[in-house]
Design a protein around this nucleic acid. Sequence first.
DNA 1: ATAAATTTTTAGGTTTGTCTAAAAATTTGA
DNA 2: TCAAATTTTTAGACAAACCTAAAAATTTAT
Lengths: 218, 218
Amino acid sequence: MTSFTEENYLKIIYMLTELNGGNEVSTNELAEHTQTKAASVSDMLRKLAEKSYINYRKYQGVTLTKEGQRIALSVIRKHRLWEVFLVEKLGFGWDEIHDIAEQLEHIDSKELTEKLDDFLGNPQFDPHGDPIPDAKGKMPTMGYQKLSDTPLNQPVVMMGVSVHSPTFLQHLDKNQITLGCTIKIQEISEFDKSFTIVLNDTHTIFVSNEVAKNLLVK
Amino acid sequence: MTSFTEENYLKIIYMLTELNGGNEVSTNELAEHTQTKAASVSDMLRKLAEKSYINYRKYQGVTLTKEGQRIALSVIRKHRLWEVFLVEKLGFGWDEIHDIAEQLEHIDSKELTEKLDDFLGNPQFDPHGDPIPDAKGKMPTMGYQKLSDTPLNQPVVMMGVSVHSPTFLQHLDKNQITLGCTIKIQEISEFDKSFTIVLNDTHTIFVSNEVAKNLLVK
DNA sequence: ATAAATTTTTAGGTTTGTCTAAAAATTTGA
DNA sequence: TCAAATTTTTAGACAAACCTAAAAATTTAT
């Protein structure tokens, strides 16, 4: 059995490993993301290593074992499926769903997850454009780039965001930047690297470099 | 904040109080239903009393305070709404949903509960015919009777069950006894008080007294 | 009415996941 | 390179929710 807390650690280790490009995750990094102290993380790492969910050499950081990865992916799968449910079926905004999905992701029932998946039409991506692993843990590939890395005048489609903070998402809402909209970069300011973009071929808006860096497009 | 465990105790106290016709619930009764020992229940009762969720005089059993009742009803509301979701939207059988709903009932988000309620069409009863309290904690009234208390030849409608065990529910499925079907008692055996009933005016079946006692009809 | 049986509480312990403080290992930089 | 800074681990505690064993209160039954 895997506790709520253990599942959270494994999920966070998975995500930080991805961010790190596959490298070990450090105790301090984990402490920040679990809202606990490094000492508590050390304790938990010893425990997760005992259960063979992580590869752990003292002072060297951790990576997930096959089994740890399986559990992490199952939690991420549930999180993202529930996010689709909250937005598509219940009408929540994409900025309102994170905390609820953090709870729902720990509900333990394979049958539930698979029926939910079917009910939602087996979605491949969640409302933020993040890929949903399938029942076997396989992630759809995305191959997206940052809007900030896109050439001028090349029309692209908005596919996801790399930051999930409610304020960022609300900012996008206010500017009518939604998943699926088309974006063409008209100009990048010399001064502050802010972007002038055309949305859906219809209207022109300005977004900061900070925004452009966190928009994923194809 | 109310923990998962505290919520469970309050829910169980509510239900046992109902069963007792409003009387105090004893420590031993609670120990049985929480799958713990009387000593553990004692500890928890002291804690719940400190938080003013229950009225507790040592050795005298407990009842809920207004606040305890409010929390219990909110947990029951969530449990029953999720059961409707599982059956109506995901296609689970009524015998498969209890354990999943036991987990979902603790998800903490008022917005979620109310949006789920709307999504389901504000149902008044769950898949077992149990009443769903509204957001203020008000229960729809039922006024049902046991099939076993119904006169011969009076057609009634099946409205609920007073036992939720999967085997009982599967037994009803096998006999095509479902919520909403019509039932007419044709005969009651002198010997074992078993029932011969007509289902939906179309076919005749036999059910034991044990079954008839646990069918709620109107 | 009071002894026996039952129920409930108390006392003392365990496990999980957290903490602070201090020790140990690693990394950084002069 | 080696001392200072940083990171990580260990040691010792604590709260929540459970346990067993024993004591205390209540109920039952002669």
